[in-house]
Amino acid sequence: MTPLLETRGLTANYGDFRALFGVDITVQPGETVAIIGANGAGKTTLLRAIAGVLRSAPAQVLHHGAPIGALPADQVMQRGISMVPEGRRLFPSLSVEENLLIGGQTRRAKGPWSLATVYDLFPILRERRHSPGTALSGGQQQMVAIGRALMANPELMLCDEISLGLAPVVIRDIYAALPQIKAGGASLVIVEQDIAQALRVADRVYCLMEGRVTLTGRPADITRDAIHAAYFGAPA
């Protein structure tokens, strides 16, 4: 089966600094893939390269086998790959509802997600719909960022640290939405610093260190020691 998404020898640079050194990952339809790794490992860079914010050689990113590595972000999104960016990045000039609407205004794919169903998923957003997006609490902002990505009815959703800086109860609420999102037909790539959380939700895990994949596997097959080694580069 052709994977939904595949990176082959993906490299990425910031000026002279190389952040990714030939990263290979695959995402099969329906899968939830977690990317873990220490600060600065290149997790965000990987998502940005997939999303087209950072361009790469065409064949370094394949979507259903088609080379998309050189496409700009707006065209990658049109193909059904949405991003929940690191730091949420809501638009300060837009209300909560407008932030959601803008997520689906350029791509109206068939699927379960609309304003109404996003509000059903995160009811608090319906109450705050007219507030400026950035006036919400961190957790609510994260819900807007997720809802905004869902509005396009994506085939693949890239989530960058959706639990970062949030209280445990809020994290639980947000992760509780994932099964419904998967049921809606989206495959997920989740960047997560909380390893336990990542192992709980993921079908497969990749660990990055200094721009390289150092560990791949199913959560059940991965030992703590292997993760520790993959994270820090030395056996525990």
């Binding site: 999303a51 914010v53 972000a73 707006d74 999104m77 049109q78 000039s93 791509r107 905004r148």
Partner: peptide, 10 residues
């Protein structure tokens, strides 16, 4: 507000 994030919106 943010052209990069806007491009992620298509």
């Amino acid at each position: 507000d943010d052209p990069v994030t806007a491009s992620l919106m298509g």
